[in-house]
Simulated scan of single mutants.
Amino acid sequence: MIDHHIGMLSIAIAALINIWLSWRCGTARGKAKVMHGDGGDTALHRHMRAHANFVEYTPIALLLILVLDMNDQVGWLLALTATVFLVGRVLHAIGMQADKPSMPRMVGMLTTLVPYAIWIVWVVLVVFQVV
């Protein structure tokens, strides 16, 4: 049996982060007593955007991770970049609650975009059998 543990574990961790972000939205929605949309509530809006941002970046990232894992690429590097990405997604969500630009948000985006770019190049190199 082929082992795709890095991809599968990344998916599981991302699903847990997604549940956490969803829970934060639900809690903020309850506090604001808003059923639909954000009702003009700043905290709820920020939670919703953090969740949406996660959903905007994570599916493609997980596909890139899984494709690299399925092609037996360097496991430690794939695991490291997946960890950096997932930690970055949490930091970004936390940083989204600040009133002004914050270090967690900035670091979160940096640790999202750098692994993303690495994986894109890496997948292209695999496709052309460079690595």
Rank of each mutant, 00 (worst) to 15 (best):
M70I: 13
V67K: 08
V124P: 02
V90C: 12
H5N: 13
G88T: 14
T58P: 01
A14H: 03
A117R: 02
S22G: 09
V124N: 09
V90M: 13
I118G: 08
W20M: 14
P59Y: 01
P59M: 01
C25H: 00
A15R: 04
E56P: 02
Y116C: 06
T42S: 13
P104W: 00
D3V: 10
V124Q: 05
R24I: 12
A28M: 01
A82K: 04
V130P: 01
L113S: 10
M70C: 07
H36Q: 15
A43V: 14
I17S: 10
V123G: 06
M35D: 12
I94N: 07
T112L: 06
K100F: 06
I120V: 14
I118P: 05
A28I: 00
L21I: 03
P115V: 11
G7Y: 00
I2W: 07
V55D: 02
V127F: 14
R49N: 05
G40C: 02
L9A: 13
R89N: 07
L78V: 02
T27P: 01
F54Y: 06
D72N: 11
I6E: 00
L110D: 05
M96A: 12
I120M: 09
F85S: 08
L21P: 01
M109N: 14
P101T: 12
V114K: 11
Q73I: 02
A14D: 05
E56C: 00
R29N: 08
K33G: 10
M8I: 14
D3L: 07
V55N: 11
T111S: 15
I13T: 08
G30D: 12
N53F: 00
